[in-house]
Design a protein around this nucleic acid. Structure first.
Lengths: 197, 197
DNA sequence: AAAAAATGCTAACAACTGTTAGCATTTTCC
DNA sequence: GGAAAATGCTAACAGTTGTTAGCATTTTTT
């Protein structure tokens, strides 16, 4: 009767959730079975239900934890009145890059598997996302008004920035010459500074 | 006994494949049942097998058709010796944008569901992708040597460019003020021209 | 050390999966 | 119009799915 190992900082539910994040990313939510997950944490499938309510609950946990992390960073950022629009956008981009580097499993699940959230969670998640994008648009708009950002479609900019960092997924697959720090600097330079000489 | 409608330019297999692309995108490959697909084309599940070999075959069809489209464009582009590196990169980016706008279903399936390809198809697909990325890197490298592109990590640039256009997925969801042409120009300006004033 | 709580196990369920067999009907071809 | 090909249907298969019930064991608390 092997127990799920837990530490002071990590409940058994937490261990299961992180294992689920890895599996949901690798195999997708639908293709991941509770028996896969149980095997990964070293237990029978039925035993999982002493710690979680359902497979869906795991997905909710993962998705909203990530959504909250992004929202919290933006909240904190907006309280600082001294930073310029460009600086704010750069801080957001850097935060996204680090999240994609440090917490790839969860971030990818929140991006790719959130469609399997049940209602009303799915609607809530999509709505939070919409609001988040809108808030970023407003920062861009402010930067344009201040003459700091050249005149450009704010919506397109935000879509571009938020998607561009997804390339990090492939960097993970083939960890090569380039380090995380290098990758971050190159991406920031490319996205904020532009490509042309 | 309702037949699957077909036209001169579109075999029944083609009709099924495009319906599959839409469902695979919406619900994911694993969560899409053959009975869903059958219902969508107005037929019983078993009847599909008069036209296709398996569910997997549909995924292969979709993924490699898209992969071939991108490779073909790059082949054509590279035969033209008159274009500069920047022009080539811009042409590639524009092609990606148009593919994401015009053939969203198939492109998204090739991106998100290719992991469900069986071997050896999955390995082949990933390899083709790797080679494609490498070829783009070489164009960037050439541009740097020519002094046309500022010194920057080519691998990071390619990852950024190829991922940035994925933002179009969300544009599709909320077709708003901004037109496809506007979106393309904004993205190109942002990615090629840079953000800073 | 006894009682209570936590955690694990096996067995089972109903629903759903992709696919095949066998047969009926419609369309295409000569 | 008759033969051959194409396409559809129903029924069924073996396997897998998430989850629950009931019970055994271990850990924690008193």
């Amino acid at each position: 009767m092997a127990r799920i190992s837990n530490t002071k900082n990590s409940t058994r539910k937490e261990v299961i959730t992180l294992a689920a994040a890895r599996l949901f990313r690798e195999k997708g939510f639908s293709a991941t079975g509770m028996r896969d997950l149980a095997g990964d944490v070293g237990v029978e499938a039925a035993s999982l239900y002493n710690h979680i309510r359902s497979k869906s609950e795991l997905l909710q946990e993962i998705c909203f934890r990530i959504a909250n992390a992004f929202t919290a960073q933006l909240n904190e950022l907006e309280t600082d009145q001294k930073t310029t629009s460009i600086q704010k956008i750069e801080a957001v981009v850097r935060f996204h890059i680090r999240m994609w580097i440090d917490r790839l499993d969860e971030v990818l699940v929140a991006n790719n598997e959130s469609k399997y959230l049940e209602e009303p969670y799915h609607a809530t998640f999509m709505n939070e996302r919409r609001i988040y994008v809108r808030r970023l648009e407003m920062i861009i708009e402010q930067g344009i008004r201040d003459g700091q950002i050249r005149i450009i479609e704010p919506y397109a900019v935000v879509l571009t920035l938020l998607s561009a960092v997804r390339g990090i997924e492939f960097w993970h697959r083939t960890k090569k010459n380039i380090s995380a720090a290098q990758l971050e600097e190159s991406m920031v330079a490319n996205l904020i500074g532009g490509l042309k000489k």
